[in-house]
């Protein structure tokens, strides 16, 4: 097959990308009108998981810090929304900034001691946070409802919003948040800050001699990542209208990590693939057997890490590279 080369930034490249995104956009917009309410709900959930994976990616993929506590951060966001709407009867949308703020602050609180922890110990500490979340939630049952959880009444959402039913409304709400959050993450990665964070991950001491202050960037990326997880958790509370301690266990943290590995560590599009994976693989696996999902996840994680550490996205890129070469334009002086 003749191999074509496409240069980034040319009009040819731009038109391909534009057409690609337009098609994707069309599919995303039409999906809830074509699919059943339940399917729409599943895709909404997949996007929520994708946001969870994205948040972990910002931390683990970019800065190389390991977190097994992102289930707790996601849960914290969800509980914030459930408590404010369920107990204090806030408008749901107003709870999102609060959830963002709470998890941002919590992220700083974890991030600061994390500065002194080398990789392994950070994994340990966040693991302990992930495991401790459930009992801590149970302990404060006067606010959290304990083991019974806390719910949001359906009637806080109107039955029909601008002609959309609730499933469709929630789907589009999550899509909008996802588009914005992915765009923000992308901008951050491709900026001075993103370069500083990846530089620190690659080689910390030289990064410091370039004037990068590791403590500052590590804490802030920890907090930003936590905030993203918290917002995703708050949106989860919209969709599920319920928070229970057993929804945010270590298993969820491992699922996020699995999504990250399957999609491709460090990539943005990989997070979406990871989200779809987290939603649909257990769904179909559990139809066969309750335990199958975990087994499949466990095996897939191990196999991918051993054989294809760049994940599914890496494989897609390899296949693409056989057909077409995408190259950067030569660098010239103006």
């Amino acid at each position: 097959m003749a191999k074509t080369t496409i240069i980034r930034g040319t009009s040819q490249y731009r038109s391909i990308v534009t057409v690609g995104f337009a098609l994707l956009g069309l599919v995303v917009i039409l999906l809830p009108f074509v699919m059943s309410g339940f399917r729409t709900f599943q895709f909404t959930m997949a996007l929520l998981w994708a946001l969870g994976v994205l948040s972990l990616n910002m931390l683990t993929g970019w800065s190389g810090q390991i977190s097994l506590g992102h289930s707790a951060l996601f849960g914290l966001g969800s509980y914030t929304t459930c408590i404010l709407v369920g107990t204090y009867e806030w408008n749901p949308l107003l709870t999102i900034p609060v959830a963002a703020l709470v998890t941002f602050i919590f992220g700083i609180m974890i991030g600061i001691p994390a500065l002194r922890l080398a990789g392994l110990y950070l994994a340990l500490m966040t693991l302990a946070i992930g495991v401790a979340f459930t009992p801590v939630i149970r302990r404060f049952k006067e606010h959290t409802g304990g083991s019974m959880g806390i719910s949001i009444k359906k009637k806080v959402f109107p039955e029909e919003i601008v002609g959309l039913n609730l499933d469709q409304y929630l789907y589009f709400l999550v899509v909008i948040f996802a588009v914005v959050m992915f765009a923000l993450a992308r901008n951050l990665l491709k900026s001075r800050v993103g370069r500083a964070i990846t530089a620190m991950r690659d080689n910390e001491i030289p990064a410091q001699t370039m004037g990068i202050y590791p403590a500052r960037y590590k804490t802030l990326i920890f907090a930003t990542s936590s905030m993203f997880a918290g917002i995703a958790g708050a949106l989860y509370a919209f969709v599920i209208r319920f928070s229970a301690p057993y929804s945010f266990t270590l298993t969820l943290a491992i699922f996020f990590l699995a999504g990250l590995v399957v999609g491709g560590i460090g990539t943005l599009a990989g997070a979406v693939l990871g989200g779809l994976f987290i939603q649909f693989v257990p769904y179909y696996a559990e139809e066969i057997n309750q335990s199958l999902a975990g087994m499949v996840f466990g095996i897939i994680i191990i196999v991918i890490m051993v054989t294809a550490p760049t994940g599914v996205l890496g494989l897609i890129k390899k296949v693409r590279a056989r057909v077409v070469t995408v190259a950067d334009p030569p660098v010239v002086r103006n």
């Binding site: 190389g64 390991i66 097994l68 491992i254 990590l257 335990s291 087994m295 994680i301 191990i302 890490m305």
Partner: peptide
Amino acid sequence: KPVQDSSLLTVVIVTLGLFLGLNSVAGF
């Protein structure tokens, strides 16, 4: 053995995969 000399991240992820796998097999 295949990941013994890999990065910490790889090792953590693989042992967690093992964690999840064993847990589910026992449940199964």
